[in-house]
Design a binder for these strands. Structure first.
Lengths: 164, 164
DNA sequence: CCAATACAATACAAACTTGTAAGGATTTAG
DNA sequence: CTAAATCCTTACAAGTTTGTATTGTATTGG
């Protein structure tokens, strides 16, 4: 499971903003300081989050960043997608077609459902957790994440019963 | 969820080998042909799998590649790890410490349990599925993957009940 | 107005990933 | 023995990611 630097640092910074009270802001330099990153770097991916509509900015001497919506309404999936910018990520089959225009395994590929189920778990997990879940204590977040993981299983079970 | 080209193509080629009968081999050019890749590229990552002890090779005119163990004994996780080569992948905390030697959020980070639970799901899923599960039909593989996803959920449930 | 503060945009360099190229080493058929 | 087939190794080029540097633009306090 590969997590890019953009995803990791961007999520951390978004989680910082989730701790703000209404009307408060955090400047890039404050975020950079608290996360141990350079100001330029923080500015860079906060801009991505702004363009994705997740973050508001204010310029000027008391400016800074704040969330555009309540933390509970911003899923972690939305943050991760927003950080990547507007470029669409191709599906496994379209993205890895080797030297050909279409994957050599089409149709009837058994690799596809493997990644498909895995991606569904990933998307389900990141969609159900929000920035609000990242501002609790470490142990509370852990329990909440476990709970979501459990809920996902029930869905998988339902789908298996439907198919068999 | 980012899947690298190495992981995707390497897994496909390993799955091809899983279809071989005992004593049969597939040459790099045969694999390359069937997967739509170059011979040189296939040779490259098959070597990684060999060094990881998952694949046997035979040189000479009737040589080629075959699995070192039965497909059921080679987990998908072992294949994905083997493809990366011997370099260890740092944990999230150690790998993303920004400009500092240690992550600024230690101790008590609520991002950590989020990735932790996700990675546990990923590892559990890829550990329980083997190359044998990738040689069935697309729909059979799909059902098997769903079943494994469900099993993982039950584990998560047990853990939540224990903690609360 | 003006200067300080802060976001915004672009360029750039180092490191990693992706895929190709070329030649070397090993086995086997004849 | 020799030649063909095959794996093995190293080098390298193009593209992407990562992080920095520089310059521009907007807002606010005095």
């Amino acid at each position: 499971m590969n997590v890019s630097a953009l995803e990791e640092y961007g999520l951390r910074c978004a989680a910082r903003l989730a701790q703000l009270k209404d009307g408060e802001t955090l400047s890039a330099s404050e975020i950079a300081e608290s996360e141990g990153l350079s100001v330029e770097y923080v500015s860079k991916f906060m801009l991505h989050l702004k363009r994705a509509g997740l973050v508001k900015t204010l310029r000027g001497i008391h400016g800074g960043f704040s969330l555009a919506k309540p933390p509970s309404e911003i899923s972690i999936k939305a943050v991760l997608d927003g950080l990547k910018g507007p470029r669409e990520s191709a599906s496994f089959c379209d993205g890895f077609s080797g030297r050909q225009s279409v994957c050599a395994r089409r149709p009837g590929c058994s690799i596809r459902p493997f990644w498909g189920v895995l991606e569904k778990m990933f998307d389900g997990f990141t969609s159900r957790l929000s920035l609000e879940d990242l501002i609790s204590s470490e142990s509370e977040t852990y329990l909440r994440a476990q709970q979501v993981a459990h809920e996902l299983c029930l869905e998988a079970q339902a789908e298996v019963e439907f198919k068999t």
